[in-house]
Simulated scan of single mutants.
Amino acid sequence: MFLYALGKLLRAVLVVFLVSVLTFFALELTPGSVATSILGVGATSEAVSQLEQTLGLDRPAAVRFIEWLGNLLSGDLGNSDLTKLPIATTVMQAAFTTLQLVVLGVLLSLGFAVVAGALAARFPRGLIDRLGDGLTSMAIALPTFVIGPILAYLLAVQLGWFPVASYTPPSDGVEPWLRSIALPVFCLALGEFATFQRLLRADLIAVLQEPYIEAARARGLSERRILMLHAMRPAAIPAMTAVGLSVGRMLGGTIIVETLFGVPGLGRTLSTAILARDLDVLLVGVVLVAGAFVFINTFIDLAYGIVDPRVRLRATAS
C-alpha cells in the first residue's frame, strides 16, 4: 500500500510539473506584454522594449522558466511587475477565499445529496423520487451564469436576505461572513448536488438488491439501518470520484461566481491577471489550481482503500 501511495504522489507531482511547463510556454506564445499594460497602449515600441529589458523579459523563455521554477520551489516568488505586490501573498489570499466557497459548496451539495439520494432510493418511483428527479434535471440544465443573476435578483435585490456583491472575511464575524458567501456557495453547489444525488440514488438502488442486503433483512435489521450502515458505504465510491471532478468544475465556476458577487477569490484574480497581462500572478494561480485538483483526486484515490478494503487489497497485491 505504501508503494501504491508513493507512486500516486509521484505521478501527481509529475502532472503538476507538466502543467507548469505547458502553461508557461503557452503564455509566452500569447500576444502582448506586461510592459504594454504598465506603460499603456500608447507607449512607443522603444519604451516597451526598454521596460522589457529592465524586467528581464528579453531573456530566453527557457532561462526565465528555470529561474521561475527555482523561485517557486524556494517559496520566493517576488513581486508582480504590474501591481508591485507580493505574488505569493496575492495568490494565497485569493486562494483562501476561493477555498471557502469550494469547501462549503462541496459540503452543502454532498449533505443534501445524501439525504435526497437515500430517500429516493428508499422509495423509488415515489413522490420524493419524482420531485428529486425534476429538481436535479432543472439544476443540471441551468448553468451558473443563469442561476447567479436569478438568485441575486430574488434573494438579494427583492427580499434583501443577502448582500448583492459584498464579501465579508471570517475575521469580521461568522454571521456576516456566511451571509456574504451564501449566494455564491449555493450557485456552485446546486449543479454538484444534482450530480451527487443521481449517482447516490442509482448506486443505492443497485446495492439494495445485493444478496448480503437480503441477508441483513432476514436478520431483522431495520431498513434505515441497512440503508445507512450497509448500503451507503459501497455506494459512496462513485460519489467520491465525483467529488474530485466537482472540485475542478467548482474552481472553473468561481470565475463567473466571484465576478458576479464581488468575491475577491482566485477566479476573479486570475481573470483580472489575464486582462492585465500579469503573467507572473496568472502562472502561479494556474499551477496552484492544477496542483489542488491533481492532489485532491490523488487523495480520493488513496481514500478508496479506506472506504472499500478490496481496493487496498488489490493495490497491495499489485
Rank of each mutant, 00 (worst) to 15 (best):
M228L: 14
G252D: 08
R277N: 12
A292G: 12
V307G: 03
R217V: 00
V115F: 14
L154V: 15
Y167M: 03
D172R: 13
G134N: 07
T36Q: 15
A206H: 07
A120L: 03
A303N: 04
F261Q: 08
L279S: 12
M232D: 02
H230F: 03
R122H: 08
L108M: 11
L104E: 11
P86S: 07
V13L: 15
Y167G: 03
V311D: 12
G126P: 04
I147G: 03
G78Y: 01
I306N: 06
L178C: 13
A94S: 11
L142G: 00
E46G: 09
L73S: 05
F123D: 06
L275E: 10
I296E: 04
L190V: 14
L245S: 14
L200H: 02
A165Y: 07
R59P: 05
A121M: 03
T89D: 15
Q50L: 13
D308E: 14
G78L: 09
V13K: 02
L229Q: 13
H230C: 06
S33M: 06
P264T: 09
R217M: 00
L260V: 07
A317R: 07
L199Y: 01
I226R: 09
L270I: 11
G253K: 12
L69R: 09
A315Y: 01
V207G: 00
V91E: 12
V243L: 15
I181A: 01
G253E: 09
P309M: 05
V185G: 02
L190F: 11
L14F: 13
D81A: 14
D81K: 06
A116P: 00
L282V: 01
D308I: 08
R312Y: 02
D129S: 06
A194C: 13
S137Q: 14
R224T: 13
L99Q: 13
D76P: 02
W161P: 01
T144I: 12
A317V: 08
G220S: 11
Q197A: 11
F17I: 12
E258W: 05
A290I: 00
S222K: 10
A43K: 04
T30W: 08
A113V: 10
A235V: 05
P60D: 03
R233V: 10
L151N: 07
G56V: 08
P31Q: 09
F196M: 12
R268N: 08
A242H: 09
E192M: 12
A26F: 13
I140G: 03
R125Q: 10
T23P: 00
L73W: 02
L221P: 05
V63C: 02
S80C: 02
I237H: 04
Y304P: 14
D308H: 12
G105W: 04
G160K: 03
F2P: 01
V287I: 10
G42N: 09
Y153Q: 13
L154E: 08
A61V: 05
L288K: 04
